[in-house]
């Protein structure tokens, strides 16, 4: 079997008496959407923070494209190929939609040390940003201030900024949170098309979206992965049903 794009090996993180990550080993393979589900407080966000470099694990290892990135900071991991979206949008609210996307392209270029030429006139960066915005359907909103976007549009912009990085793996923290049925459907379609470009590690509460999108699912309870498998396996797993899905799922 080919090597996974992203994997965690025996990842552990404790906060005092609380074990937020308990020996977590999951992997993300090329072309798939791997959903991580679990009840509130299961340690999903802690896991993401460790994968993206905001938190150091106490033990274990994180590998991206076969390279150990456990000691790298957030910025270095982004450069190594992680494209992340946030649960609570982390966008430059005073800037326009285009500026936010150009920032992504600028980060990907690795050359922020230009003091003279206007960044928005840089054709390469602009093209890259516009392509990403087109992909998520925000063409019309390019000149709008980010603060004027609806909640759903901010979610789309989050994905667009991640796209400008042309990442090797997407890490998405509850992209559907707070979206209505319409928005959720739209984003589901978008993510569905993204997996061919780079696999997605998807932390999500919206079960309809998870069952529609995921190739595999891992279930996290009290910091431990209690099951990993295909959608039908997870649906059928008695332990998962008891811990999380409820008997009638």
């Amino acid at each position: 079997m080919t090597e996974p794009v992203l994997e965690t090996r025996n990842l552990s993180k404790r906060f005092g008496a609380l074990t937020a990550s308990d020996d977590i080993s999951i992997d993300l393979r090329a072309g798939e959407i791997h959903a991580v589900i679990g009840p509130n407080g299961a340690g999903k966000t802690t896991l993401i923070h460790q994968i993206c470099g905001e938190l150091r694990p106490d033990a274990g290892e994180i590998r991206l494209l076969g390279q150990d990135v456990t000691r790298l900071g957030t910025a270095a991991r982004a450069r190594a190929g992680l494209g992340r979206t946030f649960q609570v949008s982390a966008l430059a609210m005073e800037d326009t939609v285009l500026q936010n996307a150009v920032l992504g392209a600028l980060g990907a270029s690795g050359r922020p040390w230009g003091f003279w030429r206007p960044v928005l006139n840089d054709r390469a960066l602009r093209t890259r940003a516009q392509e990403a915005l087109h992909r998520v359907g925000l063409d019309e909103m390019m000149a709008a201030p980010c603060a004027a976007l609806s909640h759903g549009q901010r979610r789309q912009l989050e994905v667009a900024v991640a796209l400008t990085l042309q990442p090797r793996a997407f890490i998405m923290d509850e992209p559907m949170a707070g979206l209505g049925t319409e928005g959720s459907k739209r984003l589901t379609g978008l993510l569905d098309g993204l997996r061919a470009q780079a696999p997605i590690l998807l932390v999500e509460h919206d079960m309809d979206a998870v069952f529609a999108l995921a190739d595999r699912i891992s279930v996290l309870v009290y910091g431990r992965v209690i099951a990993t498998g295909r959608v039908d396996e997870i649906r059928a797993n008695p332990e998962v049903r008891q811990a999380y899905l409820g008997e009638d799922a």
Partner: peptide, 13 residues
């Protein structure tokens, strides 16, 4: 200034 986390996430310090 606005969102340092975003800047790190696109690979800048």
């Amino acid at each position: 200034r606005q969102v340092p986390l975003r800047v790190r996430t696109v690979g800048l310090d």
